[in-house]
Nucleic acid binder design. Structure first.
Lengths: 213, 213
DNA sequence: TGTACATCAGTGAACGCGCGTTCACTGATGTAC
DNA sequence: TGTACATCAGTGAACGCGCGTTCACTGATGTAC
């Protein structure tokens, strides 16, 4: 890396740090690009050069926290527990993260969730990564015999992620709801997903009293 | 209703009609409050008096279409079909509506979905109404014996609505996805929800060859 | 019924704000020779 | 190694835009008596 390139990155970091602090303190609407520039000690034009918009800056500023949280949650997944418990471990972790500053994360997700992938490559990547992780987790459970063989784990991962999104929307929509309440609602939905709700079209199991291998 | 009140409503309708036309033609970003006022033949200040913001105006303008679509879809629900088919009938109907002008409905939903209920009373009411309808539909299926007795139909309705939202986000996020493709993805998720994915914790059915009553 | 006053929908112009964009520029850094 | 030029990150000021808000006002409509 050049000296020129290095100082460019340094400026970028100055702006990012200022943005993280100001966003956290005053919220997205509460501070302007000019505020952030002043705090970072650079010119407003420079901020726009590094991050094409305020939204892009927000995305970049929060990306790190999300990545860290995801890594940590995946690593701390309880090994000896039910599928539901493991799914809730992940979901609750994210709820707690977002609960630290609901307004800020609400703004982030609102700005990005409906955009085409290319507009928000980082957030998209993170979602894809999470769904992919869910899919692998389900595939493992299938191997263990906890999930039926004919289940498409990618479809199931998408469904479970949708339920999570539904609960997340609830968290943002209803200020009076705590993380625990939303988690409980999600647990109920996820549990009913795992078990299914219909009577017909299911395998009938024949538990046999045989000695294990 | 007063003469004064009547003329007030008339002005309101003039603005609404102008807004519907301009929004449809040029999109949310493509026209300004001043454009709409000009088209309606009123002053810009008047628009703000009637609708507190551009977003509120958009919500009001699209509410009618959504209401009509919902009523129509509920009325045309196929009676002799599976749960999945009926759910897809509803979901597809909404997808088609939104597909008529994705940008506009994307803007609407983005602005409203994360807001507290009180900020978007109409959209909230419509969502609640839809979920309520799903819940009733499921309760009927339970009576018919297609859904297990211990299932909480409200939780299930919330879950099915979440799956629908997940598919809707897909529709808005990926411009290349057609209504049919999104519907297919949703059908796969909903089907797996109805059946469940795990092996354990399910009732074992004992079909008996007896004459019915 | 008529009169005098109050109410209030709507007007039109102006304001301040934050946004992204533009532009001529400075000066440090990189590079070709 | 040195020199001369090119590159480019960053500057600071200005611009145009749409937004919501404000304000003094007009004139039709409603109401108290």
């Amino acid at each position: 890396m050049n000296r020129r390139e290095a100082s460019k990155q340094e400026t970028r970091q100055l702006i990012l740090r200022a943005a993280r602090r100001l966003f956290a303190q005053k919220g997205l609407e509460g501070c302007t690009i000019r505020d952030i520039a002043r705090r970072a000690g650079v010119s407003p034009a420079s901020v726009v050069v590094h991050f094409k918009s305020k939204t892009a800056l927000l995305e970049e500023a929060l990306k790190l926290d999300i990545d860290q949280a995801m890594t940590k949650l995946m690593a701390s997944l309880p090994g000896d527990s039910t599928i539901l418990e493991r799914l809730m471990h992940l979901a609750k972790g994210f709820f707690r993260l977002y609960d630290q500053n609901r307004d800020l994360y609400r703004a982030l997700i609102r700005q990005t969730i409906f955009e085409p992938d290319r507009a928000t490559p980082d957030l998209s990547r993170q979602s894809e990564q999470y769904i992919q992780f869910l899919s692998i987790l389900l595939a493992e459970e299938k191997v263990r015999g906890n999930i039926r063989a004919e289940v498409n784990t990618e479809v199931a991962a998408g469904a479970i992620f949708s339920l999570y999104l539904g609960a997340l929307i609830m968290l943002f929509r209803k200020p009076e709801m705590t993380v625990e309440m939303v988690a409980a609602a999600l647990a109920a939905m996820t549990d009913s997903y795992l078990k299914g709700i219909t009577k017909v079209g299911r395998l009938v199991l024949h538990p046999k009293k045989r000695g294990g291998p």
